[in-house]
Amino acid sequence: MILSVDELRFFYRNREILARIGFSINEGEVVAILGPNGVGKTTLLKCLNRILQPKSGVISLNGDSLSSLELIEIARRIGYVPQRVETGRLTAFDAVLLGRRPHIGWDITEKDLRIVDAAFRRFGMEHLRLSYIDEMSGGELQKVAIARAFVQEPKILLFDEPTSNLDLKNQVEILSTIREIVTQHQIAAVMTMHDLNLALRYADRFILLKDRSIHLCGGRDAITSKEIEEVYGVEVVIGELEGVPCVIPKCLTPAAGG
């Protein structure tokens, strides 16, 4: 068990956003946080590395309580990839090198350069090293952001909707990459997602949020049409394609002209 959350509560001013959240995550696992818009998926994700400060509850990281760790120590163990990646006039190499910031003393060393270089090879982006990130496509930018979190050498990677704004090819590429590095390096990944089918294909476990708390936490078998209906309020059919469950919504209203 690499991360465990117990009795987590989060308030935005006086409004309760998350109530009594509890779950745990193991090495080599990809966990998807699912649920309708505004249910608190991103808030939960941000509590996991203290971008947001929960009101109460215990999050422990390899046995250490998150609230007792320095921010920089958390950054050495948890990498975070936000939904929106800011650009600027700097090269991809510089942007990824920034991921070494939690490990940098006064200045970068040869080791930092080697690690960043290795990350570019790992993600098959050697040709982009000296490209300016403000001239990159959404998919390339997302890969740069993932590489940046990766060179933090974290034990856990957090992704806030890693595939939003990406085309089909990039969605599949990004998620396969996440899947691969998690398995290969025996780290863990937690990602918030909207696309149930992509989640079912690439994640091992699922946390369904409803009404501020966890409605369900389990593997693929636990995701049934009944649960999806209860969480999203939409009737669905769950089929199977190449051994992976596949969620298709029933039409709310008959298609026009059909």
Binding site: N49, R50, Y80, P82, V85, L98, G99
Partner: peptide
């Protein structure tokens, strides 16, 4: 390095400690 991190967005910066 802190300013580089802030330029990359507040959330990224916080994620970098």
């Amino acid at each position: 390095w802190n300013y580089n991190a802030i330029d990359a967005g507040d959330e990224t910066a916080k994620g970098l400690g």
